[in-house]
């Protein structure tokens, strides 16, 4: 187990290092960087930056400095505000993004699991067909299309919920729904397949042969086994949340990391782009690791096999 963990950790560090380097060198080869929008910067800012980041030094030295600063958690200075650190920008916009992401994944997977279990147990009935339909829509319709339509019809036309901004619980409803659609669809499809497979397995037949009732079979025997593998789709779901948050925060005007990121893309604020990219990458890598560990914790087969080593 310890060996496995170390190995995973090494991979994680390598991946992050590669992404950090990739970002650094890509930003170096963009023509004119980092002063392509130098017009926006005052002389003072320029000299501060050149000084602080040693931009007049040779590239290898800059690279080393960049990595050192990264280790200290310093992601550089944003172009768009006067001398504000990227780290501060990210920390300040973290709240809404984290809240939105957590809400979406909680509601999405929760209702997705319910939908999936129901449609597996009522296979080939109208319940199953309608939940399949919802899942296909949820998986296929791009989140920004769905968010746009939701905003127009439910927000503007029906006026049920605020159309934009982030000022309280009622502001969270539409963005959460928009962002939760993909997790919901993914979880429901996945759980349905797993549940159907489990219900056909030998140990379910044995449970029937013991005289267990339908309810005991579905919920005492099958559900747990069907839910364990759901953990594996959490990785892709987190990616979908990251992608989704970019567009959904833009659409609903939520002051989160995604919105910040899109804004910095439109105004070529490279330090913010690089910082956010790294953050997303780190998030992704850590989530994948957590998912793997979680899987080991909830599945007794892996738990004990790992423990023995």
């Amino acid at each position: 187990m310890a060996k496995y963990l170390t190995q995973r950790f090494v991979y994680m560090v390598i991946t992050l290092f590669l992404i950090a380097s990739l970002t650094f060198f890509l930003m170096k080869i963009i023509p004119g960087t980092p002063f392509s929008n130098a017009s926006k910067l005052s002389e003072a800012q320029l000299s501060i930056m050149i000084d602080k980041y040693g931009l007049d030094e040779p590239v290898p030295v800059q690279y080393a400095n960049y990595l050192l600063n990264l280790l200290k958690g310093d992601l550089g200075v944003s172009f768009q505000f006067n001398n504000v650190g990227v780290t501060d920008i990210i920390v300040n916009s973290m709240g809404p993004s984290a809240t939105l992401g957590a809400l979406a994944i909680l509601f999405g997977t929760f209702f997705g699991i319910i939908l999936g279990v129901i449609s597996a147990l009522k296979q080939n009935t109208w319940v199953d067909y309608s939940s399949t339909f919802i899942a296909v829509l949820g998986k296929s319709i791009p989140s920004f299309v769905f968010a746009g339509l939701l905003q127009y019809y439910v927000g503007v036309k029906l006026g049920w919920f605020p159309v934009a901004f982030w000022r309280g619980p009622e502001y969270m409803v539409l963005p959460t729904i928009a962002l939760a659609m993909f997790p919901l669809a993914t979880a429901s499809r996945f759980v349905r397949t797993e549940m159907i497979e489990v219900m056909e397995s030998d140990y379910i037949t044995l449970a029937k042969a013991k005289g267990a009732s339908w309810f005991e079979i579905a919920f005492k025997h099958a559900l747990r086994n069907a839910l364990i593998p759901v953990v594996t789709v959490l990785g892709p779901l987190v990616v979908s949340l990251m992608t989704g948050s970019l567009v959904i925060e833009k659409i609903f005007g939520i002051p989160g990391i995604g919105e910040q990121f899109v804004k910095s893309i439109t105004i070529n604020d490279y330090p913010v782009i690089m910082g956010t990219t790294l953050l997303f990458a780190a998030l992704f890598v850590v989530v994948i690791l957590i998912v793997d560990l979680l899987y080991g914790v909830i599945d007794p087969r892996i738990r004990l096999a790992g423990g023995k080593k």
């Binding site: 030998d202 140990y203 037949t205 044995l206 449970a207 029937k208 013991k210 005289g211 747990r224």
Partner: peptide
Amino acid sequence: MQKVRGKDISMIFQDPMTSLNPTM
């Protein structure tokens, strides 16, 4: 039928490797 199964008639299946619930 549930009252008959496991009580009056019980069954041993072909494959012992897959007949037991792995998480119980």
